[in-house]
Write a protein that binds this DNA or RNA. Structure first.
Lengths: 268, 268
DNA sequence: CCGTAACGAACATCTCTGATGTTCGAAAGT
DNA sequence: ACTTTCGAACATCAGAGATGTTCGTTACGG
């Protein structure tokens, strides 16, 4: 269906940035499960050598798997998509959700910030505000620690998990137990009124649970695709969540059910 | 004395990198306590506009203070030189010390890595070795977390102090109390057989003290200039230190005194 | 209040790094 | 053994950053 669009791109993409091309390649490989170097060269209008270099880069990032002659997707079934891959998608929606959440936070608050791509966008917005932030991912720690904005950074202990750098483990739980926050901003992998909040990973779920317990108020940030879905590890019931910020793709029935259970829902 | 060298540079420095110029400016301002834009332009051979931009950059980094017409040093008396400033100096010696320390560490060890520029170099060397590392500075966490080498990263909790990103505070102490390491690699601000190990900052000293207590073996990394010096905050006696790695500028009498007190001294 | 020096925004120019494509010998698969 | 793929090496190109110049504005000293 979008092959017309692709044709268009092939002709007029002299100014295509390599990030765009990487996204295109990642999408092509993911959608069809695999692709040859030739196909990708034709698709993007780049030379085969460039495609090989791209594939090496993407393979190093864990977005796809390199095979002789082309590349294959890493996603077999139901697994959590790699962080590097998710980072490509739906940046606009995440930005809007992040802006909405930033507006919910008052100056001077202490904030606990979960891992995930959406929360990373939130970190970007909080950097120049007079707040105290404890992020639960290495990426957000980098962001807040490098260019010292007006935000105060507190680093939790922990062991980084996977490419995302989500901090987990006993050190993280101990840091959470030692502190109390005004607001916890949590990402999620699945959320429904029936099954509550769920995550892909047990360690991650334990951290989220402790995060919610350490905060006076909990805000969940998630795109509409996660609503109504249930992932593997159970975190807690939706009644623990004070506010949910999502985008316009959220299914109406699920939103209604969550609102019925007492959660304030905002659509960005 | 080295004004001849400076003259030489003025004439032949078409290919001077801006880092070189920044170092030159920082040194000039530090040595004389202040300098005008004109003086610095003449010294470096760059235009006044470029000098102004440099000064803005260096002021943002906390290396110096901008005043109308020029810049002033931030160092009043006996204070710790800013991290951004120290980072310029003596990179070679730090590299050699780092290499020596890396050689002292066996595969499979768990290592506690202090903050400081020398320890940052050590982190660079440990990244691709099969060891477990808990660094006490944001910079080293970045280094080990970004490009996942073979080293396992453990993040301590804490609050980053100053530009260096040294982690301190109760969260850091709690993380240290919860873990035990094979080796602690410690930097220092002053070390002598008489006054022991000292640091510029009380919080930092508390972290160093706890670090030494959490490790089976303690290695101190420091350039020769710190030996025989005593800084403000006391950490502990030199007898706590198993090995000292320093460079050839170390004063012989101090080295002898430390060896007499039971510390193994290696010169890189 | 005025004059002078300093400042910084805007633009033009330059340099250099990183990205890309081409070629060709080596390696892998059939 | 033959074909395809790979990747190292080199040439080329574009974009980003650095630098310098100009000029209107601002701040300090009288």
């Amino acid at each position: 269906m979008n092959s017309l669009l692709v044709r268009f791109l092939v002709v007029f993409n002299r100014g295509m940035s390599n990030a765009d091309r990487h996204g295109l390649i990642a999408k092509a490989v993911r959608d069809s499960g695999g692709a040859t170097v030739q196909e990708l060269a034709e698709l993007t209008g780049a030379s085969e050598m460039t495609i090989r270099r791209d594939l090496d880069t993407l393979a190093a990032q864990g977005v796809l798997e390199r095979v002789r002659g082309g590349a294959r997707t890493l996603l077999l079934r139901g697994e959590e998509p790699p962080f590097a891959l998710r980072a490509h998608e739906a940046v606009d929606a995440k930005r809007r959700i992040a802006a909405e959440i930033s507006a919910l936070i008052a100056d001077g608050e202490s904030i606990l910030l979960d891992s995930g791509t959406t929360c990373l966008e939130i970190a970007r917005l909080l950097r120049d505000r007079p707040v105290t932030v404890m992020p639960l991912s290495l990426q957000a720690i980098h962001l807040l620690g490098e260019a010292p904005g007006s935000a105060t950074l507190v680093v939790p202990g922990g062991q980084p998990r996977a490419a995302e750098g989500a901090l987990t483990g006993p050190l993280t739980l101990a840091s959470l137990a030692a502190l109390r926050f005004d607001t916890a901003v949590i990402g999620c992998c699945g959320l429904s009124a029936a099954d509550g909040l769920t995550a892909y990973d047990l360690d991650d779920a334990a951290v989220k649970k402790a995060s919610i317990a350490s905060a006076r108020r909990t805000i969940v940030a998630t795109d509409g695709g996660k609503l109504g879905r249930t992932a593997y590890a159970y975190v807690g019931p939706s009644t623990l969540l004070h506010t949910l910020v999502t985008d316009t793709t959220a299914p109406a029935d699920e939103v209604a059910a969550l609102e019925g259970a007492g959660t304030i829902v905002k659509t960005a």
